Amino acid sequence: MKSPYKSLFLFLMVSSTCMVLSSSNWLMTWMGLEINMLGFIPLMYLKETTSESETVAKYLVPQSLGSTIFIVAATTSLYLDGLQTLMPIAMCLKLGAAPFHFWFPPVMASLSMLPAFFLLTWQKIAPIFAISSFNPTLSTKILPIAGISALWGSIGGLNQTEIRSLLAYSSIAHTGWMLASINSPNPTLMIYVSTYILINLSIYTCLTKHSSKLHKQVFSAKEPFDSFLLALSILSLGGLPPLTGFLMKFLVLYYTETSVLIVSMLILGALISLLFYLSLTFSPLLSLNKAHTTKLKMASKPSIMFLISQIFPMSLMFFFL
């Protein structure tokens, strides 16, 4: 696909998300979600291979099913109030939240890094904020899905060897935390989504320099600073204090209004995720010996900015406290 067409579909994807965020009725929300899906699908054809066509089919079917369930539930809820519950469930299907995550890991495993980054980050904005615009009674009914997603995503990532599959199950776990923050005060969900996108951006910046898919081969001894940045970003994604990822999870636990069982599932899922994140990054962090620390001064300015972004917010919080 040529560059001008990519720019057109990228603009379509961004504008449709803004359309969902600013919509005032279900019809406009549904139209924005459909345009968002149609704008993202051409961007998945980065290398134009046969496997990408199969991946597009795996993505298209559940997304279309979710959109169909949403518009049918929205129209029939005028006569049957009980069908309104299907509207947030349809959004959970589009998000890839457990137990509706069957399509998400296979799609992530077959995508290139750039569309995979969009699927992890930008494609979550429209459905998650659509759920936040629902009636609070509807949002409360999907809180069990938040606990299941956080727990299932952490358990599913234990035996993964490919970095994309690992990020996919991590995304499922973080989707549970996003769903848990829906009934919190307004800035909480926005802060969580923004921080999650920032952390994934730093991971994407490091992974674009490596062609290997196995997470044990991603950390390179020739580039110690990039390996250190990747390890730090992964630990921040897992919520290790005092990094930025811990701050966003702390805000959700502080402001969320749910049962003790769901909060326990969120905390247990975070601990399990942190277990395999620590086992993944323990060796690369220890491999930074004195010979490698001299190369840290040669790091680029964007890499230093990403490094500061993982540490600086927590430093500010401790300073003001």
Score class of each variant (00 low, 15 high):
residue 33 L to R: 09
residue 219 F to C: 01
residue 36 N to G: 15
residue 66 G to C: 07
residue 231 A to W: 09
residue 89 I to E: 00
residue 69 I to H: 08
residue 297 K to T: 11
residue 194 S to I: 12
residue 159 N to S: 10
residue 260 V to S: 14
residue 63 Q to G: 04
residue 268 L to S: 13
residue 98 A to E: 00
residue 128 I to H: 05
residue 302 P to K: 04
residue 280 L to H: 06
residue 72 V to A: 08
residue 310 Q to D: 03
residue 194 S to T: 15
residue 170 S to I: 07
residue 45 Y to N: 01
residue 132 S to A: 15
residue 27 L to A: 13
residue 203 I to R: 02
residue 21 L to R: 05
residue 201 L to M: 15
residue 159 N to W: 12
residue 137 T to V: 14
residue 229 L to C: 04
residue 273 S to M: 15
residue 268 L to D: 00
residue 239 G to R: 14
residue 198 L to T: 02
residue 119 L to M: 15
residue 96 G to M: 13
residue 263 V to L: 10
residue 91 M to E: 01
residue 270 A to M: 14
residue 256 T to R: 01
residue 57 A to K: 12
residue 284 P to F: 09
residue 211 S to E: 14
residue 49 T to K: 14
residue 72 V to H: 03
residue 177 W to D: 00
residue 64 S to G: 15
residue 178 M to F: 03
residue 122 W to Q: 07
residue 170 S to W: 08
residue 210 H to I: 15
residue 292 H to S: 06
residue 50 T to G: 00
residue 40 F to V: 10
residue 5 Y to R: 11
residue 186 N to D: 12
residue 253 L to A: 04
residue 64 S to D: 02
residue 236 S to H: 08
residue 103 W to T: 02
residue 76 T to D: 02
residue 244 T to C: 10
residue 105 P to T: 04
residue 288 L to N: 09
residue 34 E to V: 06
residue 208 T to Y: 06
residue 122 W to C: 04
residue 96 G to W: 14
residue 157 G to T: 01
residue 39 G to Y: 11
residue 294 T to S: 10
residue 11 F to D: 00
residue 224 P to V: 08
residue 176 G to Y: 12
residue 78 L to P: 00
residue 207 L to I: 12
residue 283 S to K: 14
residue 87 M to D: 00
residue 180 A to V: 11
residue 121 T to I: 11
residue 233 S to A: 15
residue 165 S to F: 08
residue 300 S to W: 05
residue 140 T to V: 07
residue 15 S to L: 15
residue 222 K to M: 08
residue 235 L to H: 03
residue 6 K to E: 03
residue 287 S to T: 11
residue 126 A to H: 07
residue 5 Y to E: 06
residue 86 L to Y: 14
residue 296 L to N: 04
residue 280 L to P: 02
residue 68 T to A: 15
residue 43 L to N: 03
residue 270 A to Y: 06
residue 298 M to P: 01
residue 213 K to F: 13
residue 16 S to L: 08
residue 95 L to Q: 05
residue 41 I to H: 06
residue 156 G to N: 05
residue 299 A to S: 15
residue 126 A to V: 11
residue 222 K to E: 13
residue 221 A to H: 14
residue 120 L to K: 04
residue 312 F to K: 01
residue 291 A to P: 02
residue 31 M to W: 14
residue 2 K to S: 12
residue 52 E to R: 08
residue 30 W to L: 09
residue 227 S to Q: 08
residue 258 T to K: 06
residue 25 N to F: 08
residue 107 V to G: 01
residue 29 T to H: 06
residue 87 M to H: 01
residue 65 L to R: 05
residue 196 Y to L: 08
residue 1 M to V: 11
residue 248 M to P: 00
residue 103 W to L: 04
residue 60 L to N: 06
residue 176 G to F: 13
residue 137 T to M: 13
residue 242 P to N: 06
residue 37 M to V: 11
residue 49 T to C: 07
residue 221 A to C: 07
residue 47 K to N: 06
residue 164 R to D: 00
residue 85 T to Q: 12
residue 311 I to Q: 05
residue 158 L to C: 05
residue 10 L to E: 02
residue 200 N to K: 08
residue 209 K to N: 09
residue 116 A to V: 10
residue 186 N to V: 10
residue 12 L to T: 13
residue 93 L to R: 02
residue 237 L to F: 15
residue 134 F to T: 01
residue 262 I to H: 05
residue 181 S to R: 09
residue 266 L to I: 07
residue 1 M to E: 02
residue 43 L to T: 05
residue 234 I to V: 15
residue 32 G to F: 12
residue 282 F to A: 04
residue 274 L to S: 01
residue 140 T to N: 15
residue 174 H to Y: 10
residue 161 T to Y: 10
